[in-house]
């Protein structure tokens, strides 16, 4: 479904990604793990078009999207939940979710999806008319994911969904991620909490300083000596 080939990208003269390649197939949860500042977020930003790659190709359904602007990419079915949640703080929960469906025009289906999101996240339903800035961190993360689902993505890019959340909330979020995947959405997950990410995902990639150094099934990575030492704290 998604294929990245020899992708390099960066900010100004600083190069953050060095020729990385990865693939995500339909129906999978793929995770990208690694410590701070190795280029995980940059990878997602480049896929969703927020950042232009310097070289290399990004293929979604075999179409090169490396030069496609972000709003077109959303229309094609990729939705990005940016790091740090980025909800619209002064708008209500409902307005946030409605903006998630901005690129769509099928009103009836949007209504159905809205009800579906409310069902997936009962906490949001309670706070429908509250402004998003007043929600707790966990609720904001749910809102950000719900908002991304409102665009009916086929591929969901999740950037650090566990960041800054209470441990109990983190488990809840990961259960929901599994559930979203079960309903048919493919997920590319970036996460620092390697343990949890590898337990949730089918396959994983390990990044170090802008390069992918390992890729394998999630189960195998959990057993991998190097991964255990560096990321699982064993």
């Amino acid at each position: 479904m998604l294929r990245i080939e020899n992708l390099s990208a960066g900010y100004g003269s600083i190069r953050a990604l060095h020729q990385i390649s990865l693939t995500v197939s339909e129906g999978e949860i793929v995770c990208l793990i690694g410590s701070n500042g190795v280029g995980k977020t940059t990878t997602l930003k480049t896929i969703s078009g927020l950042l232009r790659p310097d070289e290399g190709g990004i293929y979604f359904d075999n179409r090169d999207i490396s030069r496609t602007p972000p709003h077109k990419i959303v229309e094609m079915g990729i939705s990005h939940v940016p790091e740090g949640r980025n909800v619209f703080p002064r708008l209500t929960v409902r307005e946030n979710l409605e903006l998630g469906a901005y690129a769509r025009k099928d009103k009836a289906q949007i209504k159905k999806d809205f009800a579906q999101v409310m069902e997936t996240f009962p906490q949001l339903a309670v706070r429908e008319k509250q402004s998003a800035g007043t929600l707790s961190g966990g609720e904001q993360q749910m809102l950000a994911i719900g908002r991304a689902l409102m665009s009916r993505p086929r591929l969901l890019l999740l950037d650090e969904p566990s960041m800054g959340l209470a441990p109990l909330f983190v488990l809840g979020i990961f259960e929901i991620i599994t559930e979203i995947n079960r309903q048919g959405t493919t997920i590319l997950l970036v996460e620092q909490n390697a343990q949890l990410a590898l337990r949730t995902a089918h396959r994983g990639y390990v990044m170090e300083t802008g390069r992918i150094i390992l890729d394998d099934s999630a189960a195998a990575l959990l057993q991998n000596e190097r991964v255990r030492k560096a990321y699982l704290g064993e």
């Binding site: 927020l50 980025n86 909800v87 002064r90 901005y102 991304a148």
Partner: peptide, 14 residues
């Protein structure tokens, strides 16, 4: 949406 958060607006397809 742009006023509230431009990056998020972009990723909404705006």
């Amino acid at each position: 949406a742009i006023r509230e958060d431009e990056t998020a607006a972009d990723s909404m397809g705006i």
